Amino acid sequence: MWIEVVEGDITRLEVDAIVNAAAPSLLGGGGVDGAIHRAAGPRLLEACRVLPEVSPGVRCRVGDVRVTPGFDLPARYVIHTVGPIWRGGNHGEAGELAACYRHAIRVASGLELTSIAFPAISCGVYGYPVAAASAVAVAVIHATQARDVAITLCCYSPETADAVRRALLT
């Protein structure tokens, strides 16, 4: 398995799939979710709208994933996942965040993809501390058996990239 940390815009990466830190509705939002929807174009919203709801207004539960085409993105696929909202760290957040990474990697392997890029899931408006989230992400990535998948951890800020690099060293 190959792991790379990059600073930049995940919507510009030429990988097989990018992971969207999505809202449960999958209908777009702020942060990474909004950026991916804007860059992929209106067909992404249309594709998300036809995904079945698992409960009213929810197309993807926390820790689960859904897959759509990438449409106008350089990536062929978008793997949507819903990360946990940080509530202090004692409410199962680490397990829910780990499920996001684990399920996305499994889907990528099942689709026989060779490259996948992750944002810092839950670290924006969901408030997950970057260092703690980075430790979870790195632990899951190392524990997976997806040896044929190159993983890019795409960080929007130098501070996030530094936290991810520190987690890779531990």
Rank of each mutant, 00 (worst) to 15 (best):
G89N: 05
G89E: 06
G89H: 09
G89P: 02
N90V: 11
N90G: 07
N90R: 14
N90Q: 09
H91C: 09
H91V: 05
H91L: 09
H91S: 10
G92E: 11
G92L: 08
E93P: 01
E93V: 10
E93A: 06
A94D: 14
A94W: 05
A94P: 00
A94S: 10
A94G: 00
G95K: 09
G95S: 06
G95Q: 10
E96D: 12
L97I: 10
L97C: 05
A98C: 06
A98Q: 09
A98S: 13
A98P: 01
A99Q: 14
C100L: 08
C100A: 09
C100P: 02
Y101H: 10
Y101D: 04
H103W: 01
H103A: 11
H103N: 15
A104G: 02
A104Q: 07
A104K: 08
I105K: 05
R106Q: 13
R106G: 07
R106Y: 01
V107Y: 00
V107M: 13
V107D: 01
S109Y: 00
S109I: 00
S109A: 14
S109P: 00
G110E: 15
L111Y: 08
L111E: 06
L111R: 13
E112H: 13
E112S: 13
L113V: 08
L113I: 09
L113E: 04
L113Y: 05
L113G: 03
T114Y: 00
T114W: 01
S115K: 09
S115D: 09
I116H: 06
I116N: 05
A117P: 04
A117H: 11
A117E: 09
A117M: 10
A117C: 07
P119F: 01
P119D: 12
A120M: 13
A120Y: 01
A120E: 02
I121Q: 07
I121T: 07
I121A: 04
I121W: 01
I121D: 03
S122T: 08
S122N: 08
C123Y: 04
C123D: 03
C123E: 04
Y126V: 06
Y126W: 13
Y126H: 12
G127L: 13
G127V: 14
G127P: 05
G127T: 13
Y128F: 15
P129E: 08
A131D: 13
A131K: 12
A131E: 14
A132L: 15
A133V: 11
S134E: 01
S134N: 01
S134A: 15
V136T: 09
V136C: 07
V136I: 14
A137E: 02
A137L: 11
A137W: 03
A139C: 02
V140M: 08
I141C: 03
H142R: 15
H142K: 15
H142A: 14
H142S: 12
A143Q: 14
T144Y: 06
T144M: 12
Q145V: 00
Q145P: 00
